[in-house]
Design a binder for these strands. Structure first.
Lengths: 251, 251
DNA sequence: CGGGCGATTGATCGTCTTCAACTTCGGTGG
DNA sequence: CCACCGAAGTTGAAGACGATCAATCGCCCG
């Protein structure tokens, strides 16, 4: 079975050897298609497979007693999800399909074996998790210190950047995969206020909206409003162990 | 050289073999003592060692153009810091000493080799990073959906829990390691409002303050205000690779 | 054509910020 | 030993920003 979505993702950061690709492919244990809105893993599920997104968008959210929720992260092609299951008996949040999507399930034990067989890939996965952690710190900063305008602008820019990683041809116009309510749940605002904020951004000539299409008219200005640090991800030399160990060991 | 702080920390989650402990000890490349307020790594440093906290508290923060800042995380004994250096050429935030502290420096290359030599330890480190990620999502939820009261209560409870992990004898009374301004920077509030919020919590009989000592009078009530999910960390069986591989391989 | 979800708009209210002054505490030097 | 100093904590008043409640519109889909 193939696990092209993960192979493709890791390859962005370091060229993989043939044996590393083979090892990654052995992880796949099936695929699953999900419809927009369907809950892939409920918030207090007691066990769940790890999986990689093949196509579409998912989000991870936490619910409060009063019914409100916080969307903690959005994910798309190549993202590894469900990793909290390694360290918690219960899920730490719900995983829901933001759009129709397809996921590749991963065998948990095989994932553990990967650390033995392909230490360099394990180190890459560790680095990917660092990326995710930093994304969270940036969103935390946005929620803690930014106005509504800044928070929404940061989210729009983040989505654009994420779309471009998967598909290099994406320009400044694209369809936002989330509703205004979902933007609100992610930015800690109400749907009503997200609406007003988008309007303000539009009136200031920063964005344009036609139907469901969004255009970033002035990305730089938007960036100034978003107040987010620019980060350039890239595995740093001098820490990844050398490739090739996997050749000599069997699972 | 010894790296007891990290060994002790990992041992909380899984018994380490002798060879695993040895491998961890080879990571240490020196210690450093820092005074309260000193910046261990500036925000845009271009390279920095990884290190483990031996004693005291540190925090990680991001600054905005206008001079305000967001404290992204607090750390104490056993925490591995500087891991963003694996995936970013520039630091993703400043690391500052909250109290006088002592840190153990770790050799970067040796850390990478650890993935080869001790895959099970690498998997443990991966799990620790998952813990850290989940801590961030919980703080994100707190900032996004909680009132000032809830945010401050959550922080107080988190500090208490963290103190107890390191020192099991800590009860409901302890000295808060951070100032009200620092609490504000962490919760996305102003120092002024943190002050009023603490007063409210006190008037409602949830906490007591005498000098710099804080007492959690009603931890359950505080928990209800904090609105945070209870999480029980613990490495899940069935994913860690077996111990012992390190015996047969040299660095 | 009807139903429903998502988007939109207005009015009012509450929370938190801002600015400014003042106090308390711990430390340091005369 | 006391005077002074700076950092942290405390308090008040006014105002901004976003929440809340409620109503309406528009569009997609069955």
């Amino acid at each position: 079975m193939q696990l092209t979505c993960l192979v493709e993702h890791l390859s962005r950061y370091s060229q993989l050897t043939e044996s590393e690709v083979d090892a990654l492919n052995t992880l796949a244990s099936g695929t699953r298609v999900v419809r927009r809105g369907s809950v892939i893993r409920s918030e207090h599920a007691t066990a769940c497979d790890v999986f990689v997104i093949q196509r579409g968008w998912l989000f991870c959210s936490v619910s409060l007693e009063d019914g409100r929720r916080q969307i903690v992260s959005f994910h798309s092609r190549g993202d590894l999800m469900g990793g909290d299951g390694f360290g918690f008996a219960r899920a730490t949040g719900a995983i829901t399909a933001l759009t129709d999507a397809e996921i590749c399930l991963i065998d948990r034990t095989a994932f553990g074996q990967l650390f033995v067989v392909q230490p360099r890939v394990a180190a890459l996965l560790y680095t990917m998790l660092q990326f995710e952690r930093v994304t969270l710190t940036d969103r935390l900063t946005s929620l803690g210190r930014n106005s509504a305008k800044g928070r929404v602008a940061a989210l729009l820019l983040w989505v654009a950047a994420r779309l471009r990683i998967v598909d290099g041809t994406v320009g400044d116009s694209f369809t936002l995969p989330m509703t205004q309510e979902e933007i609100g749940d992610a930015t800690g605002l109400t749907a009503v206020h997200v609406n007003r904020t988008l309007r303000v951004l539009e009136q200031q000539g920063l964005i344009e909206r036609t139907r469901s299409l969004l255009r970033l008219v002035d990305p730089d200005g938007l960036g100034r409003v978003a107040n987010q640090p620019l980060r350039r991800e890239g595995v740093q030399g001098g820490w990844l162990p050398p490739a090739g160990y996997g050749e000599f060991r069997s699972t």
